[in-house]
Design a protein around this nucleic acid. Structure first.
Lengths: 161, 161
DNA sequence: AACAAAAAGTAGACAGAGTCCATTTTTTGA
DNA sequence: TCAAAAAATGGACTCTGTCTACTTTTTGTT
């Protein structure tokens, strides 16, 4: 509580009830959407506007206090874990997202063979697959993968079979 | 023309003027959005509905004839280059997207240290940075990167400084 | 403690990308 | 050629997120 306030102050971010609640919400729910976080904040302090949530998340991301990940076909997700350069593993069928340790370790953790003159500052890696519980469902029903592993709308993505 | 029709037939996809035009449009404009492709198709055959474009793109992606990439904060992009497992390099400031050869070569081209029981089928890699022409602009104005490199709305993403 | 200036928050309209649905048109294959 | 199956149409609708004008809260300075 005081903790969070001090963190905000250290970064020169004005301390408001909304931001404090949001910071806690992000800490408590890794990989939550803005909407879910807004609900969490409401549960704690009564009300917040959508805009306050988006503004605050934007500021916190900008200052490096939280991290935003935007998987294809899904709304943005936020997480408190920053600075350790981990990546994500996402289930195509239920959307479950888990952290995975960085493959290499340093940031940017990969080198493009040909960088075309770009100055690269980040290598974003997302592993796509099927989570254990969706795998189990597939096997149980005996349905083939195309059936049971059919991605939900929000996760429809290219499959390169 | 006949070429494309045969490809569609080979994959069991009914041949329609819309799909043929779309296939050509994707081939001619790598990294185009659905909207841009729809315009291209209209230029060629007069008219298409938004839905026909989305349906056709979806089908083609599903069959592996084209590839969909969905960079954070941007609408989906489509490309005809499939099967060579290359990745993408995107400019944070102007959105320019170029292909880069795969870092490793095989697909999935990376291994997650801990896969948490997932069955991984793809490792998606996006390199983020600044393209040569935006770099030049930055240097010319003498503005610092935070200024000149300010991402456009459609490309606002986490920065991990 | 009080007070202006600056920064945040509020509510609601608005925008872009994509989906849904009922109906019409085209393609296929017998 | 003709019916069944698949696509296309177009318009309403949804979901994330942004813009704007206005009000409220923080801050930091007397």
């Amino acid at each position: 509580m005081l903790e969070s306030a001090n963190i905000l102050r250290k970064y020169g971010i004005p301390v408001t009830a909304q931001r404090l609640a949001l910071l806690r919400a992000v800490g408590a729910r890794p990989h939550a959407t803005a909407d879910v976080l807004a609900e969490a904040v409401r549960a704690e302090i009564g009300a917040v506007s959508k805009q306050a949530v988006y503004n605050a998340l934007g500021t916190l991301v900008e200052k490096g206090l939280i991290r935003r990940i935007q998987p294809a076909g899904s709304p943005a997700l936020y997480e408190g874990r920053v600075g350790d350069n981990h990546h994500h593993l996402i289930c195509r069928s239920c959307g479950m997202t888990v952290d995975v340790a960085c493959v290499v370790g340093e940031r940017p953790c990969l080198n493009a063979a040909d960088h075309s003159g770009f100055r690269i500052d980040e290598a974003e890696v997302i592993f796509w697959g099927t989570c254990p519980s969706c795998l189990e469902k597939t096997e149980k029903t005996g349905a083939d993968q195309a059936e049971a592993g059919k991605p939900q709308d929000f996760l429809t993505r290219p499959t390169t079979p």
